[in-house]
């Protein structure tokens, strides 16, 4: 099997300040990896470098493309990277407003992604949009409503539908359950877990919530001050943390 994503010595600086440094990992098809760390630890910088939103200063990000096999996404052309972002990748933002077009209907938000990869038949697009609204548990009667009329949890589910409709193989998520009520979070977690399993997706999830990674991620990376301090199997990192910072992080969680 070929790894889906191989990251080698990736570093990003903001001036003299280290964003993230010397990150290495290999993600295999079907794996979900969590990245945890406190604010400013570099986890979002890393995610943005992986997803092509930001150019790293050093290192390689090798993605196994459908057509040409493993390619370094850092050195490919901007149009090539954009095409990957529309077809093979998906990016779920913490704030659904950053990932949705707020003035376009729910159906239009989903259909938009399909049209970006060449779909032109109105009936097909609408049918697929309807199917996806159903999968993310949004009432199909609301297909023509705009997302601003939706609750936060519904907006987040719509953003997920918009992202997954084109059948990506790798999903980047930045705090996907942040800002949601806990009851809404639980439903979203269940939905995400079901979709990841059914579609065989791989995902990289950035969060500061250890409960979320325990439920969603197979493996875990812990970051502090731009460095990876520990990585491994999720329950091993959480139950038997080796690094001083990870031990502090795990022992700081409030028990309910």
């Amino acid at each position: 099997m070929t790894p889906l994503l191989q990251v080698e010595s990736l570093s990003k600086f903001y001036g003299n300040h280290l964003g993230c440094g010397d990150v290495n990992f290999t993600l295999w098809p079907g794996e979900v990896m969590g990245i945890v760390g406190e604010s400013g630890s570099g986890k979002s910088t890393l995610l943005n470098c992986l997803a092509g939103h930001m150019a790293p200063d050093t290192g390689r990000v090798i993605f196994d493309t459908r057509t040409d096999g493993p390619r370094d996404t850092v050195t490919m052309t901007e149009p090539e990277r954009r095409w990957l972002a529309r077809t093979d990748w998906a990016f779920v933002h913490q704030n659904p407003r950053d990932g949705l077009r707020m003035n376009v209907s729910a159906g239009g938000n989903v259909g938009d992604r399909l049209m970006a990869v060449g779909a032109r038949h109105y009936g097909d697009i609408r049918r697929q949009a309807q199917d996806w609204l159903g999968r993310v548990e949004i009432d199909q009667a609301r297909i023509d409503d705009r997302p601003r009329a939706f609750s936060g949890g519904m907006q987040q589910r719509l953003q997920i539908a918009r992202n997954l409709v084109t059948g990506p193989r790798l999903v980047f998520m930045d705090e996907p359950t942040g800002g949601l009520d806990v009851s809404v979070q639980a439903r979203l977690l269940d939905l995400l877990r079901g979709l990841v399993r059914r579609l065989g997706l791989s995902a990289v999830i950035v969060t500061h919530d250890l409960a979320v990674v325990r439920l969603l991620a197979d493996r875990l990376m812990v970051m502090k001050d731009g460095r990876v301090v520990e990585q491994g199997l999720t329950d091993q990192v959480l139950d038997d943390p080796q690094d001083a910072y990870t031990q502090l992080l795990v022992s700081s969680v409030l028990q309910v």
Binding site: Q236, D239, D240
Partner: peptide
């Protein structure tokens, strides 16, 4: 048991 399950190193 946990070492065999793999959550303890």
């Amino acid at each position: 048991m946990r070492m065999i399950w793999g959550n303890y190193r």
